[in-house]
Structures are given as structure tokens and as C-alpha cells.
Nucleic acid binder design. Sequence first.
DNA 1: TTGTAGGCGTTATCAG
DNA 2: CTGATAACGCCTACAA
Lengths: 356, 356
Amino acid sequence: MYACTFCFDLEKEGAHIVTRKEVAELARVSEATVSRVFNGVGPMKEETKQRVLEAAKTLNYHPNAIAQSFARRRSGNLGVVLPYVPKVHLFSTYFFSEILSGIGSKVREKGYDLLLMLRTMEEESDYSDIFRSQKVDACIILGAGDTPQERDQLKRLQEAGHPFCLVNQHFPGERFNEVDADHEAGSYMAVRHLLQKGYRRIAFLNGSPQFSSSDDRRKGYERAMREAGIEPAGYPHWYYEGNYSRTSGYRAAARIYEHREEIDAVFSANDRMATGLMQGLREFGWEAGRDIAIIGCDNSDAARVTDPPLTSVGVPFYEMGSLAADRLLSLVLQEGEPFQLKLGTQLVVRQSCSKR
Amino acid sequence: MYACTFCFDLEKEGAHIVTRKEVAELARVSEATVSRVFNGVGPMKEETKQRVLEAAKTLNYHPNAIAQSFARRRSGNLGVVLPYVPKVHLFSTYFFSEILSGIGSKVREKGYDLLLMLRTMEEESDYSDIFRSQKVDACIILGAGDTPQERDQLKRLQEAGHPFCLVNQHFPGERFNEVDADHEAGSYMAVRHLLQKGYRRIAFLNGSPQFSSSDDRRKGYERAMREAGIEPAGYPHWYYEGNYSRTSGYRAAARIYEHREEIDAVFSANDRMATGLMQGLREFGWEAGRDIAIIGCDNSDAARVTDPPLTSVGVPFYEMGSLAADRLLSLVLQEGEPFQLKLGTQLVVRQSCSKR
DNA sequence: TTGTAGGCGTTATCAG
DNA sequence: CTGATAACGCCTACAA
């Protein structure tokens, strides 16, 4: 009998939404006091506090986050913008899932929530829309490229005073908040590695030019070559350009194979293109690591799966995401300065460039 | 001079947050009328409507989403729970990014937003917490497994009347909302394909048992074998179990190679394990498609990258996500019934099982 | 067709 | 230390 009543009550509570008011009544204090207890502000008698907490527990009270956001005029959400291209995987999902994980862990640590916004390409939507609805307090923009439109939109965001941050992308000449990786240094290391192994005729397979990492990698490649006394500009057949997709790497294989007399290694601006390249070359009977050396970038899962496993420049995407969220949320809380950070990269040597 | 004033005004507007009140004043109507116009409810004079819209445009008014949520007592957010294991990729990121994309497109189409919740494993947090704060109106749970704790939590959610949905996971005996794929049929097709190619000694590399798809795939495998007059239970060396990670597939390679006399094909419960398996076997000098046939599941990107490319059972993750979001949000709006759906799968033949 | 007014569940500011 | 009380921006009967 008692048990029944108890169960019944519990079920009712499950449906009913407990408010601060009820807690206040049960604890015989004012609603304001309940809020103080839950926000830990102001001095208060320990006994009162305990009475409130107890009442809250028996009623199973949980503050309404929406009401809090409304009253505080802060959503408590960090927005993350992802370029969304259905059925086409221009970027590696590795890139995004790592960064997202990094953001997610930091955001949770800071008591925020993550609002995901998938941006379709066709849509000319202003970034400001994201902030206008007030659903996010700040926002991290992933996969942005340096195009005139993009620059314009970001500038407007900046001028409007909306806090945002870019990850893995740099806009020269602007002072946007950014967390980037030192792709130049990473590429330099990779190409140096090839040179030390005795390769001299090293081609470069670049990605889409609107991403700053493409430019950085090209610079690293050229610096290493020039330091070795080789001027890559003198060899037109050493430069190829894809769009970071596996397919574009696959297509490059044909062109590269055409000039096989002048090439004994390829440095690719990401792993996806490198895997496509390996696959394409294999169809001509060329094996990476035997007939040609190949190095990729990102050190993604794909690099471990290919045959032979792919040497690659590791990029700390997870840490970049975490750091971006950390600094950006600090900015929102008025504690912290604008930032433009660059994290180190690391060469992970595997078999795709080991022979010789 | 005029231009200057204009610019100045625009900048001020960028910082100031325009409210409904100001629009009402400029349009010389009540605030209620502004709301009606923006929500398209109730009859109204076309002229009034235009006046309001114009005023809103000149002031650059956008309704405050938080305030709307507060008043409507609906957040307008769909929660998505992801298991979050830093630095460990138990599932393929492919799986999640596809489902997430599917959810994302549907959610946007319905005017909702996506709230991402990364769930760490250690944490014993009740799923109800997700709803208590009122930050989501419904929620899609990804990567759940059939464990006693999980079942308990989901039951409680159900009893509390919180709308949720599972994707790619079935809980026998419960009536949870689910969108699953017909893994049994897919596996059956895959194994039939092997049998038709003349393979008879087919081993099965399963994934973690807490996922219903593991069980389904085992059933499909067994049904195909039995129909061919082979009782797999009679061959203990035909069953292996990994945890869906590439590494677990790699490790299985050694055990499978040990019994190579009794095995000429392997059906793997996902692509990641299959790629690990291929890699492991290669270290013993065994090539997939030449010395052994291999088929995976998921038809992920990885299946196209391996050498040889991997035959795989395609699962419509994108559509599953989209469908789940669609039906779940319909439920929230009181239009639509509880659902338990199952989508078809498809065998994608590549070279990993072509020879012979 | 439009306006008035009460309410949503907090936060935060003042008195006491 | 604690209790009133005024916002917060919008929704929605109900009234006119």
C-alpha cells in the first residue's frame, strides 16, 4: 500500500516539471534564496542551504536551462559550423571528428553545450544569422576557405563584435581568432626526410588553394628543396593540384606517372589524396615505397590502412579544437585576449618512403 | 556627410539588439501584432503585415530564439548523444558522420537545431539529465549497446515520457523508437555471394556482442551457410570476435592464419576490422582476393582505400539518421506514432573476393 | 482585424 | 543573511 503510493508519486513527478517556486515553499524560504543556493552566490547560512538542497532533492528539482539562458541573456551554447556536403567527402571525416571531439571535451568541462550548424554550400547565408537568433554565445567555424565572400562575411562578424574562431585556417592580413597548426614546418620536415633518404626529384601534390594550409605546405616544401640546393620552380612537372579528395589524388596519379622519369617521390598535402595517388599508381604497376616514395599529411586513420602504411605529417586536431574552445569561451567571459595560435606538427614515419 | 551618418547608424545597430517592441513602435502596431506577423498566425490585414515586415527589415529585427523557447516551453533543439572515447576510435567515424549528416539535414529542414552531447564512458549519468534541463525536446541516441544498465536507463526515459530514438540498434523485448538496418539480410547476401563464388569454408569475424547488429550479422551468416548445407556450429575455428576496431581485426589475423587450412574466406562484421585483418594477413604473406576472400560491412570510405578494394555490405546510415530525426520530431509535435523501422542494405562488390 | 494583459522560470538589484 | 520585486523578450488567450 505504502509502496504503491510511493511509486505513484514518483511517476507523477516524472511528468510534472518542478520549479523553483515549489522548492522554495517546501524549504520555507523565498525563491531568491533557492537561486542563491543553486548559483552559489552571496553568503548564506549553512542550515538554509541544506534545507534548500534537501527540498530540491526530494522534489527532484533541476533548474530550467532555457529560463536561465533567458534571464542571463546568454545561451550557454557554443556554435560549431561545419561545411556540409552530402555524399561528398572533400575533407577527411577524420579532421572533423578529431576537432569536434576536442571542442566537445573542453565545452563540457566549461559547462557549455555544443550547437552544431551544418552549412550547405549553395546557401549564401550570412554568418551573422547564427548570432542573431542568440542561440549561441560564440562560434567556431570549421572548413572555411580564404575566398572574397568568406573574408567579407567574417569581417562583418568581427565588426559586429561577435566572438568567433577559426581552426586550421589562417587569414593573412586579418586579426581573426585562430588556432592553426604549423603546416609549413611539418611539410619542411617531411621533405627534409625525403631528401635525407636520398630522394631529390620530389613532386608536390597540393590541395585546394583557398585553404591556408595548402599555401603553408607549399612553402615548407619549397624551403626544404631550396635549402638542398634545388629550385622547384625550375621543374614544372613537380607541381600538381587536387582538392583534398581521394579521387583527385587518384587522378593525379596518371599525370604523375606520365612524368615518372623526372619524379622519384611525392609529398602530398593530405592523406586522402595520397591514398588515391597510391591506388592510381598501383594500377600502373608502381608501388609506393618501392618505385616511388610518398608522404601524406594529417596522420589520419587512412594512413595506417594503406599498403604500405603511409608516412604522414601528424596534426594535433584534437588539441586544436580543445584549445580553440577554451580560448574562445574565455573571451566570452571577458577573461582572455584575442588569439592567433599555432600548434606544432610531427612526422610519423611508416613504410611508404622507407626503401632505397 | 550623409553617408557617414548612415554608416554610423548601421554600426550601432550591429551592436544593439533589436526587440519586438521597437518594431511595434516603428510600425505603429502592438507587440502582439508583430508576433502574429512573424508566426503567421491569425488573420491580419495585408497592409499591416507589410508595415511590420518593413519596420523589421529597416531595424534588422530577428526574434530572440531563447525567448521564444522560453515562452513556448520548447527548446527547438534535437539532442544527439554520441559515445565519446578520446583517442580511441571504436566505431568508424564514417558511421557517425553519415548519421549525423542525415540528422542534420532533416533537423534544419524542420526548423530545429542540433545539440550535440558527447557522453564519456566512465560517467554514470542518467539519460534523464539530458531532458531535465529542458535544453532538448527529443533526443537521438547513437552508439548505445544492449547492456543491463543501458536498458534500465532507456526504460526509465521511456517511462518518464521523454521522446527518444535509437539508430542502428535494436532492443529485443522493448518498444523503443528505433531506426535500424536489415543487417541480417545484408550479411545473408554477403555470405551467399561468397558461396556462389565457390567458397565453402567461410569464417565469421564478429564485433562486440552488445550491439544488436553483431547478432543480426551472425544470424545472416548462419542462415546462408545452413541453406548451403553447412552447419557452422560444427566448425569452432570459423568464429572470431573483435570489438569493431581495426586493431581487433589485425589481431584476429594471427588466429585466423593459424587455421588457414580450414578457412578460405572471412566475412567481417565491419570494414574497420576487415582492413585490420587484411593488413595482418598480409604480414603472413596472404593477400585478400588471392589467398583468401574477405567481405566487410558498412561500405565505408575505408573499403575503397584498401588494396585490394574491399567488398562490403552497404548500410544507408545517412537515410537512417534523416528518417530517425523526421519521425522523432513528428512525435514531438504530436503528429505521428511510435516507430520501429528497418532499412535495406546492399552488397557492394569489389576485388577483395573476386579471384577464384 | 488588432490591442491588452498575464505568464513563462530565472537572474539580479535593492532594501531590510 | 534573506525577501520582495523588477526585468528579460516573446506567446497567447481574451477582449474589443
